[in-house]
């Protein structure tokens, strides 16, 4: 059998939830380690080697100068670099602090911010070339598997970027916007989750980030019509993907 591809899982500024999602693939996990050589994954093993990786899954965004160095170093050692989850793609929830002065946010958290040296939060694509993105906070197990299987077969993964509305209609749900006048982010947010929240009667919060070619301004106008004020609307677009070019205007740039 050919040599198993070497995988590395790295964590930058994030909550470790995306890595947990790999652990949660309980049914497939044992098969996965038969197929891949997990060469670097601090959360899972003691001895780690980050040299000559075939695939690197990067969780988390960039928020310190050291992380900039680290991601550039990983890039050099990796054939195929994956932005694994929303933080690595565009900063996600940690990027909410980009809208207040650095000093202010540091003073809220640290008693003595004089030692803190952090930057605005960005996705890894700000600094290095990214080969694939796995959307989601965290990404769905199915999309992780799809990417890994495609890597083995050397084919293009089928990672759709259609809106949550598509999956919501597949479920047969009534539209929360038109039927209940609720500010659901579904029409601009990438699917992949199976529309879990709307199926339970809750609005989409936007955790998979922007779909392909979203019309964010139209949805902001619809929210205004439902009765949201400008501040509410900004907060909704900032929450998971305020740094994305697709949502920048609505997030208040």
């Amino acid at each position: 059998m050919a040599k198993k591809p070497k995988i590395g899982v790295f964590k930058l500024t994030g909550c470790a939830g995306c890595q947990m999602e790999i652990f949660r693939m309980e049914d497939e996990f044992l098969d996965l380690i038969k197929l891949f050589d997990i060469s670097y994954w601090k959360m899972a093993k003691r001895d780690n080697d980050d040299k000559d990786l075939d695939i690197a899954l990067i969780e988390g965004g960039i928020s310190t100068p050291w992380e900039i160095e680290e991601i550039k170093c990983i890039r050099k050692n990796t054939k195929f670099l994956v932005a694994f989850g929303d933080c690595a793609i565009g900063g996600c929830i940690p990027s909410i602090r980009n809208w207040i002065p650095q000093m202010e946010s540091e003073e809220i958290v640290y008693p003595d911010p004089s030692k803190i040296c952090s930057t605005k939060v960005h996705g890894i694509g700000e600094y290095v070339k990214v080969d694939a993105e796995l959307k989601g906070c965290p990404p769905h197990r199915k999309t992780i598997l799809e990417l890994l299987k495609s890597a083995l077969l050397k084919i293009r993964p089928r990672l759709r970027q259609h809106p949550v509305c598509v999956e919501c209609k597949f479920q047969g749900n009534a539209c929360l916007i038109t039927s209940n006048k609720l500010p659901c982010m579904g029409p601009v947010i990438s699917g992949g989750c199976g529309a879990i929240c709307p199926t339970l009667g809750r609005i989409c919060e936007g955790c998979f980030g922007p779909m392909s070619n979203p019309n964010a301004s139209a949805l902001a106008n619809i929210f205004r019509d439902i009765g949201l004020n400008d501040e509410d609307i900004k907060r909704k677009f900032r929450k998971y993907s305020g740094m994305s070019p697709e949502f920048r205007l609505e997030a208040g740039h």
């Binding site: 809106p163 509305c165 598509v166 539209c175 029409p187 601009v188 979203p214 019309n215 139209a218 619809i222």
Partner: peptide, 9 residues
């Protein structure tokens, strides 16, 4: 109406 969202619904 508002502009189309291309949500596919």
């Amino acid at each position: 109406s508002f502009p189309c969202l291309s949500c596919g619904s």
